[in-house]
Each structure stands twice: as C-alpha cells, then as structure tokens.
Amino acid sequence: MQRISATSDLNGLRIHYLDTLQESDASLVPVFVCPGLSETAEEYEDFIAEMLPRRVIVLSFRGRGRSDTPLSGYDLQDHVADIESVVQQLQLTKFHLYGYSRGVSYALAYARRHPHRIASIIVQDYPAEHKAMTAEWPRSYIDEYLIPTNRLSTNIRAEAVHGIQKDSTACEITFSFEKPVLVMRGLLEDSLISDEELLPYRLHFSNLRIENFTKSGHNIRGSEKEKLDRTIKDFLAGVGEGDNVMKLS
C-alpha cells in the first residue's frame, strides 16, 4: 500500500501523520482522525485499511509517536494547533472529523473554531469537555498503565504526560452545530460518557445520532471492533459526499 508518512511544520515543531491520498477515491470526503491520549497514528492502520477507498488522515499529537516533544505547550489550544498544521499542509477544505477519548476534546475544539471545514463529527466515548489532570495523575498513569503496557516513550513520552498535567485547563466545549454528529459510547462501567454527559451533545447538536455499545466500556475498538467500523461506515455513507471541494496536495 502507498501510505504517505510525513510531518507538518508548526513553527519548527514537527507533527507526524499518515495519509492514504494515493490509495483513495478523491470523490469521497476524507476522514481526519484525532487519536486518544497515548495513541499514535500507526495504531489506526487497521481503521485506515477498513475505510478504503475513503481517504484517511491520522496524526500523532505532540509528544506522541513520531511527532516532536516540546517541553511545554500541552493545553487544548496547543493540540488544536497540531490539527491545524496538518490540515493546512494538506490544504484540506472539507473533511469528517473523528476523535477518540481525549482526542474528542481536541477535535471538538477544532470544529468549534473551523466549522466551515467540517462535514460531520464522530465522537467515541468522551464528553464534550477538556479535562484538567490532578497532580497525582502523571505518576499513576505512567506506573500503572504506560509502563505495564509498554507504551511509554514509543507511544507517549513522559515529558508529554507531565506537560498535559501542568498545562491543561478544564473547560466545556459546546457550540451549536447543525451538520451530522455521531456519538458512540460504551455502556459498561468504564465508559466515559454517562447519561448526564450526553445532555450537552443533545442540546447543541441538532443532527445527532447516538450509538450504544452494550458489550463495551471505554475501549470499544477492543471489544466490538466490527460493529464500531460498520457504524462509522454506515454513518459516513448516510452523510453523503455533497460537493467535495478538498484540494489534493
């Protein structure tokens, strides 16, 4: 497969991304993926393959994967700038925006700033907010999750974990949006969207579809991958392509 692996330049900060431009059908509106907190672009290879011939772009946010790791600059607007740098480099003018876990907050904040570029929004198991992290979070996250799962350094650097805790400020990310929105959530105990946390989506997104995954908690892809991929593909097919005026780099 002719996968493009490249970096955008954000004032000297390199943001790595994967792009299936050379394999895709230019008549289909592409999907831009914002991974979860410690995920990298490479972890979406199976999703990329599943979506073909639709073009998919997946970035690794700062401090993750093959992107650079600054010592500071890990708040919401900094991650939105990562998205903006890749979108600008690829000259994308219209795309579906898909976020998972903490990537949802980055995706929603980008969509709030650039609604004209967004054909639809796909939310996977995260509320419409940006969360601050406690002072104890970095050590527990590193010791209890990243090290045991061999995700430290290769997926996310310790500097990024500490930067997220230090720089992140809590805020709701709400805005009126009339284009299609898909919210997917698990119903098991470790899901991150409660019934109460669905309310902002219901209130602000007038064209909303909610899909529940009864066998999943937060990690829907790990427990119901086939249904997840099918739900996304069916949703995109239902949105339609309209006038796909994206520029191809």
Rank of each mutant, 00 (worst) to 15 (best):
M1Y: 07
Q2A: 13
L10T: 09
L13S: 03
R14L: 12
R14D: 05
I15W: 06
T20V: 08
L21M: 13
Q22S: 11
S24G: 11
D25V: 07
A26Q: 13
A26R: 13
V31S: 01
F32V: 11
F32M: 01
V33F: 06
T40K: 08
E43N: 13
Y44K: 04
A49N: 15
M51A: 09
R54H: 00
S60M: 08
G63N: 01
R66V: 06
T69I: 08
S72N: 04
S72W: 09
Q77T: 12
A81I: 08
A81W: 04
E84Y: 05
V86R: 03
V86Y: 11
Q88L: 10
Q91T: 01
L92K: 09
K94D: 06
S101D: 02
S105L: 10
A107C: 03
Y110H: 08
Y110K: 02
H116I: 09
H116M: 12
I121A: 09
V123P: 06
V123N: 12
V123K: 10
Q124H: 13
D125S: 01
Y126G: 11
H130A: 13
K131L: 13
E136D: 12
W137A: 05
S140Q: 15
S140Y: 15
E144C: 09
E144M: 12
P148N: 05
T149S: 06
R151Q: 09
L152I: 08
N155F: 01
E159H: 11
D167E: 07
C171F: 12
C171I: 15
S176T: 14
F177V: 07
P180R: 04
P180Y: 00
V181E: 05
R185M: 09
E197N: 05
L198S: 04
H204D: 02
H204T: 02
S206C: 09
L208G: 06
R209A: 11
R209K: 06
F213K: 09
K215E: 14
S216F: 08
H218V: 09
H218C: 02
N219I: 12
R221N: 12
E224V: 00
E224I: 10
E224F: 02
K225P: 01
E226T: 15
E226I: 07
E226K: 15
D229I: 15
D229H: 14
R230S: 11
T231H: 05
A237W: 14
A237L: 14
G238K: 10
D243T: 15
D243N: 15
